[in-house]
């Protein structure tokens, strides 16, 4: 039951991500076992350089197409430029930053 995860990943490859993680978080919700309803995407790409968050999210939504967007219930998006990602990575060496995990709770 990883069909939707694979579809999301393969679509997002077109944004040439330096890092891409697609998590199926459906098990944390009130849906049947094996559901593909709630996803969280963490993506790092140079295409986000100089783009505000709204523009980044719109780009992802357009890349995923309505077909995918409309067939899932929730999509959490965490978008970073390579520079922003590096900054976070560096920060983890001293003290780990919040990576937004509680945003979906």
């Amino acid at each position: 039951m990883t069909d939707m995860k694979n579809r999301i990943e393969s679509r997002l490859q077109s944004l040439q991500p330096q890092f891409l993680e697609v998590l199926n978080e459906s098990h944390r919700h009130n849906v049947p076992v094996g559901s593909e309803s709630h996803f969280k995407v963490t993506i790092v790409s140079a295409v986000f350089d100089d783009k505000p968050l709204v523009a980044r999210h719109r780009l992802i939504n357009a890349t995923l197409t309505n077909e995918i967007i409309h067939s899932i219930h929730a999509l959490a998006l965490h978008t970073f430029t390579p520079a922003e990602w590096q900054k976070r990575h560096d920060a983890t060496r001293t003290s780990p930053p919040c990576l937004g995990g509680s945003a979906a709770e």
Binding site: V54, H57, N61, I69, L75, H78
Partner: peptide, 20 residues
């Protein structure tokens, strides 16, 4: 032109969803 809820508007301008 935003597929998800919630959505925040401030002073008539769309700000984004909960991740933003």
């Amino acid at each position: 032109s935003w597929p998800t809820i919630p959505q925040l508007y401030v002073n008539g301008e769309f700000v984004g969803g909960s991740d933003i």
